[in-house]
Design a protein around this nucleic acid. Structure first.
Lengths: 144, 144
DNA sequence: ATAGTTGCAAAAGTTTTGCATTGTA
DNA sequence: TACAATGCAAAACTTTTGCAACTAT
């Protein structure tokens, strides 16, 4: 039995709903729509604006403010990770595991690097009273 | 012969003027004042706003827009380096050499780590057509 | 029903830009 | 004098918040 396009869309929505419930977030229309887009494919890197364009292009209506709020809620809930590489805008990564990034600034493109590939050695002890929370590595690349 | 406070201030201004000329920037009043503050002591990390507060507190009048423009001009000229660690604001570092940072987000504090201390191993080759421009390491710390 | 949650318009930041003014040659 | 460079007010961004409307129980 082949599934129709409509069925796939429903499946994505159902999966998103489950994922949201599991994360303790109410599956509202906007959240389900955004989650469906975000988690449909594998790893994705989005900005608030790129995701807003995406929902809009899909014919759905979600305000940009809601996209921002939702991205932060998803991040709080552990569904997304925020990646700070550009002073002009925030990126969000659907890959929440341990990994690092290549960043091509001119095109706003992020590429994942598996966490186990990279090793950072020689980190001095943090100043007294402070402990290491996370180590972020950004490999800034440019067109050769 | 001890130098008066006024002399020191003059010296700082003279040094700043030289530094600006050497970098190919016209030593205007605003630039000299900002450069005097920035390069008076050793390594410093400032935001546009913190530097603006500083000039203002010193009784000088420079608009915030000019502080932004000047920080970017100094960065272009190689006198400063921009450090991207916080999505909310840009930091500028008077240490332009090879080094990395601890970042205590809750207080907006950056601490330099000498470049030779840290080694990043296992960086995969960048995707075809791209070359590595720089490797940034940020050790995010929190109060223990 | 209704209590807590949500979504968005409006506000608040931060950063950039256009242009009158300034400073230099 | 001319003319490029500068500094800042105003504009343009991105992001956050307060509260009316909604929704899950």
């Amino acid at each position: 039995m082949g599934k129709t396009l409509r069925d796939s869309s429903k499946d994505a929505a159902a999966a998103a709903t489950l994922r949201l419930r599991h994360a303790g977030l109410r599956p509202t229309r906007q959240r389900v729509e955004l989650a469906s887009l975000l988690f449909k494919n594998c790893d994705r890197h989005v900005t608030a604006e790129s995701l807003h364009d995406e929902v809009t292009d899909a014919g759905l209506k979600v305000s940009l403010a809601t996209v921002y709020n939702t991205l932060h809620q998803f991040t709080e809930a552990g569904l997304l990770r925020q990646v700070i590489v550009d002073s002009a805008r925030s990126y969000f990564d659907t890959n929440t595991g341990d990994h690092q990034h290549f960043f091509l600034e001119s095109e706003g493109m992020l590429i994942d690097i598996p966490g186990e590939s990279i090793a950072v050695a020689g980190v001095p002890a943090p100043p007294p009273g402070l402990s290491v929370d996370r180590v972020d590595v950004v490999i800034r690349v440019k067109r050769a």
